Deep mutational scan, measured.
Amino acid sequence: TQTTHELTIPNNLIGCIIGRQGANINEIRQMSGAQIKIANPVEGSSGRQVTITGSAASISLAQYLINARLSSE
């Protein structure tokens, strides 16, 4: 079954999640098997909405990979 998880990434950290020309986010997508959508910046908001869709296992793996990127910054 597909589930969806949403999280907010601070604007100053979204770059390390996306990577150069989307390299990091594509790697996270491939490794986790989850669909990951990053919302466009919202004016006045300090973060970007990230939506992860997939199986429970792929979502938790995607979250783990995202958190690993954030903590390495």
Results as ranks from 00 to 15, higher is better:
15 G>T: 11
3 T>F: 15
39 A>K: 10
49 Q>D: 06
22 G>F: 05
66 I>F: 04
20 R>K: 13
13 L>E: 10
28 I>M: 05
8 T>R: 11
60 S>D: 15
58 S>A: 13
13 L>P: 00
31 M>R: 14
16 C>V: 09
29 R>M: 11
6 E>G: 03
1 T>A: 09
26 N>P: 02
24 N>Y: 12
6 E>F: 09
17 I>H: 01
36 I>F: 03
45 S>Y: 11
33 G>N: 04
27 E>K: 13
62 A>P: 02
3 T>L: 14
29 R>Q: 14
12 N>T: 10
47 G>W: 10
58 S>I: 00
8 T>D: 15
44 G>R: 06
34 A>S: 08
53 T>P: 01
35 Q>A: 09
63 Q>H: 08
43 E>T: 08
8 T>L: 11
26 N>C: 07
14 I>N: 01
5 H>S: 14
43 E>K: 15
7 L>A: 03
28 I>F: 02
72 S>V: 10
33 G>Q: 07
14 I>E: 01
48 R>T: 08
25 I>R: 01
10 P>C: 03
26 N>Y: 00
39 A>C: 11
56 A>P: 13
18 I>K: 04
65 L>K: 04
37 K>N: 13
71 S>T: 09
53 T>I: 08
43 E>S: 11
66 I>D: 00
39 A>Q: 10
70 L>C: 14
7 L>N: 01
27 E>S: 11
28 I>W: 04
72 S>M: 10
21 Q>V: 01
46 S>F: 12
12 N>Q: 12
32 S>M: 02
47 G>Q: 13
71 S>W: 07
59 I>P: 01
61 L>I: 12
62 A>L: 00
62 A>D: 02
45 S>D: 13
48 R>A: 09
25 I>T: 04
67 N>E: 09
10 P>N: 00
12 N>H: 12
32 S>A: 03
43 E>C: 07
14 I>V: 08
22 G>D: 06
70 L>Q: 00
19 G>M: 01
23 A>P: 04
60 S>N: 06
66 I>V: 05
67 N>F: 13
44 G>P: 06
54 G>L: 01
2 Q>Y: 14
69 R>Y: 00
26 N>Q: 13
30 Q>P: 01
33 G>Y: 00
69 R>S: 09
8 T>N: 14
7 L>Y: 04
29 R>H: 06
3 T>G: 15
1 T>K: 07
68 A>E: 15
32 S>Q: 05
22 G>W: 04
49 Q>Y: 03
11 N>C: 07
55 S>H: 10
